[in-house]
Write a protein that binds this DNA or RNA. Structure first.
Length: 407
RNA sequence: GGGUCGGUGCCCGAGUGGUUAAUGGGGGCGGACUGUAAAUCCGCUGGCUCUGCCUACGUUGGUUCAAAUCCAACCCGGCCCA
């Protein structure tokens, strides 16, 4: 049980914790695993470190013998969770949602080396993967009305996001009120004992408790975990804010992003993403960043890859880019899509380093582009063939590196 | 349904007939600096293998030599009334 509580969250510290402790004891006595619900909406294609806090906790429950009920919100993804949103979310098609769900499961470690998997997919009885369309798509109007009848407009408007939008005159579409109800209903459908979520999920998790009570189930225990700050150190880590580290990113980009998170949040990253002992780490802020970045990268990619990434980051970013670039391990970019002869600005966009050739032109003019360490001065510089570029390292700014390779 | 105000580039937000991808801020990216950063300063911030050519101010038409700016219809939203 101990590893279900990170340092400082001892089970006896508050009523809420006692309730959770009591359930764990009870479950042990009955020989019945608890059903731990974690819902994730497949609205994007990447899972990032912010999500992984929840999955680490879910994994801890699995390892303690409980059943993780992973809910793929394939139905709710199409409504869009209004939490933290200042506007209505774009509705996704069933196909997009299904594709996202598949990549999510892969990123969580389905069908991969269990050593690096975030979730235990293999031990029998430890994982149920459910899609909420299973029960939500089948609701008929009387059932939907019953669901709607459980809460009031006042309750909905008490939710911060709704209140804010209502107050500022930003439209709230009626169906958005359904979202918390449906997420809550998921808890009823899977008979959850515990629901994991970020603290921003409080409203929705509480809704689950209400609905379970309504359907005469024992209300779930809501275990709300802290939100991971993003790379900017200010806002929460979120895809739409562009401050994320994706779980499937290569070691180098993962490491180099992490080693520069603001000092103020390094300790948050350490407690939320690693098992390292804070006291045992170097006090020097720079050292601490590196230790954190190394450990987080290691957990995902293994020690060797993480150390290599650390080394590469040092040679590439640390001044002498030209010298180190030649042998550092850098993600490759194929020249297959490039039509030669190629001008520099076109090359950058064709190879995917810049979003457009106009942007590439600006970057070159701004002096941010290097080829094998040498600054590219002329956006119109022409390269005659792929052979001339093969093996060279293209650099944009301080953190984007691509080794150009022949198809 | 009626009244009224409004829909501008990633976001906010100027701009009410005439050099111009369109003031300003935020964010983002790049450069200098630094312990990587943050702070500060500087530059960039529609697209296109590009010394030029395209597409842009809700949509579609119209007036005009000329429209984001005027007119009409339509679509969408806020507020008030029903």
């Amino acid at each position: 049980m101990a590893d279900l509580f990170p340092a400082g969250e001892g089970p006896a510290s508050s009523d809420a914790d006692q309730a959770l402790g009591a359930r764990l004891v009870e479950a042990a006595a009955d020989g019945r695993p608890l059903r731990v619900k974690l819902g994730i909406d497949p609205t994007g294609s990447d899972i990032h470190l912010g999500h992984s806090i929840l999955f680490r906790k879910l994994r801890a429950f699995q390892d303690a013998g409980h059943t993780a009920v992973l809910i793929i919100g394939d139905f709710t993804a199409r409504i869009g969770d209004p939490t933290g949103k200042s506007s209505t979310r774009v509705q996704l098609t069933a196909e997009q949602v299904e594709a996202n769900a598949t990549t999510y499961l892969q990123q969580l470690g389905q069908g991969q080396d269990p050593a690096h998997a975030l979730v235990d997919f293999d031990t029998p009885g430890r994982l149920e993967v459910r899609r909420n369309s299973e029960w939500l798509a089948a609701l008929n109007l009387p059932q939907v009305i019953e669901l709607l009848a459980t809460s009031t407009v006042g309750q909905m408007l008490a939710k911060e996001d709704f209140a804010k939008r209502y107050g500022s005159g930003t439209p709230i579409v009626l169906h958005e009120f359904l979202y918390p109800l449906l997420q809550g209903y998921d808890s009823v459908a899977v008979r959850a004992d515990i629901e994991l979520g970020g603290t921003d999920q409080k409203f929705n998790v509480a809704m689950g408790r209400d609905l379970q009570r309504h359907w005469r189930q024992r209300p779930q225990f809501g275990l709300l975990l802290p939100i991971l700050p993003g790379l900017d150190g200010v806002q929460k880590m979120s895809k739409s804010l562009g401050n994320t580290v994706g779980l499937s990113e290569d070691p180098l980009s993962m490491y180099s992003k992490l080693e520069k998170v603001p000092d103020a949040v390094v300790d948050d990253y350490l407690t939320l993403l690693t098992d390292l002992d804070l006291a045992a780490l170097p006090a020097n802020p720079r050292q601490r960043q590196k230790a954190m970045a190394l450990e987080v990268t290691r957990a995902r990619h293994g020690l060797a890859a993480a150390q290599q990434a650390q080394l590469d980051a040092a040679t590439l970013v640390g001044g002498a880019a030209g010298a180190g670039a030649a042998d550092a391990e850098v993600p490759e970019a194929s020249l297959a899509a490039v039509n030669f002869p190629a001008r520099a600005f076109y090359l950058l966009s064709a190879v995917g380093v810049c979003a457009s050739s106009s942007e590439a032109r600006r970057q070159i003019q701004g002096g941010g582009v290097r080829l094998d360490g040498q600054k590219l001065a002329d956006a119109n510089q022409e390269f005659a063939s792929a052979a001339e570029l093969d093996g060279k390292v293209l650099q944009l700014g301080k953190r984007t590196f691509r080794r150009l390779v022949m198809p």
